[in-house]
Design a protein around this nucleic acid. Structure first.
Length: 295
DNA sequence: ACACTGCCCTGCGAGC
DNA sequence: TGCTCGCAGGGCAGTG
């Protein structure tokens, strides 16, 4: 399930294959995957455009497109691969399987293809100012130089929500999903149900470092291939280096006690109940209910 | 502000 | 073997 490191890997591997290419045609078989505008406008609006750049913002892939004609302005295509989307650039004659739902023909005889078994992925075509507005609702990039430990501490102090929920909130911080939220909290020895505002200065600094370290390491390993994630150049390796995610019942690498699993907001959450304690101040009837069904 | 539920989808594993 | 059922989950809308 692609999060920031996986999308970053996809973008890095797509970039040399796409930048400078012109889209010569678009094929779709699942109109609902087009988020904006209509499927017809999406297709017509892309044909003839050159791909100028391919970047990542949060878990979005953002391609800047040149003008279609002397009169038309530039545009932005945004792709969200969500759970099961895979992007490939292949020769046009390569057979398509039934899970390919969007195809962009390129001027070099190849095709950019979105393969998406669960059809959760979304495509959008925006004018540049629309794109800026949509992407502007996202929180800061956790790896950006501009996000300092002091900024992060200030952000946490202003929120009473649970750490797990907050880290996954894309308006709070962009790009973190279930895997890396669990991993960062484990590294920082913080319980997922802790309230953000209650962290000490040292704890918020630990969480800042843990988040950046785990995301950077995951990018270095080309992401975690759990479920169906695959970048254009193949699977990542980070799944072999996860400490808690998907390891329910297996020993915590730090203390050897079994890794626990609980459900927060309908998302499975993996943690070590020995290394990640919940202070009495953060306990309530609601947290006790959640902790009562921990496995 | 925050929590929670249900929805979108399909593949897969469990149970029978 | 083959069926049904429930689960997985990012983002979002709707409700409390």
């Amino acid at each position: 399930m692609p999060e920031l490191p996986e999308v970053e890997t996809i973008v890095r591997e797509l970039r040399p294959r796409l930048v400078g290419r012109t889209i010569t045609g678009v094929w779709l078989d699942w109109p609902r995957q087009i988020k904006h505008p209509s499927p017809e406008e999406f297709k017509a609006g892309l044909r003839g455009r050159e791909i100028v750049s391919v970047e990542r913002r949060a878990k979005w892939i953002v391609a800047a497109l040149g003008p279609r004609s002397a009169r038309g302005g530039p545009a932005v295509m945004a792709i969200q691969v969500k759970m099961t989307g895979q992007l490939d650039v292949v020769a046009a004659q390569t057979p398509r399987d039934k899970h390919v739902h969007a195809v962009f023909a390129l001027d070099d005889g190849r095709e950019l293809r979105l393969r998406d078994t669960r059809k959760f992925g979304r495509l959008a075509l925006y004018a540049p100012d629309e794109a800026a507005r949509v992407l502007g609702t996202l929180g800061p990039e956790p790896l950006a130089d501009e996000l300092t430990p002091r900024d992060f501490a200030r952000m946490l102090r202003a929120r009473r929500a649970r750490l797990k929920t907050l880290l996954m909130n894309q308006e709070f911080l962009a790009g973190v999903g279930n895997i890396y939220a669990d991993e960062a909290l484990w590294r920082a020895r913080l319980h997922p149900l802790r309230s953000a505002a209650g962290l000490s200065a040292g704890q918020s600094r630990d969480l800042y470092r843990s988040l950046r370290d785990v995301l950077a390491e995951a990018i270095g390993r080309r992401g975690s291939s759990v479920d169906s994630y695959r970048a254009p150049e193949g699977s990542g390796e980070m799944q072999h280096f996860l400490n808690v995610y998907g390891r329910t019942g297996k020993p915590c690498p730090r203390c050897g006690r079994p890794t626990r699993r609980m459900v927060i907001g309908a998302r499975s959450t993996h943690f070590c109940s020995w290394c990640q304690r919940l202070p009495a101040r953060d306990r309530s009837e609601a947290t006790d209910r959640l902790l009562a069904v921990v496995r």
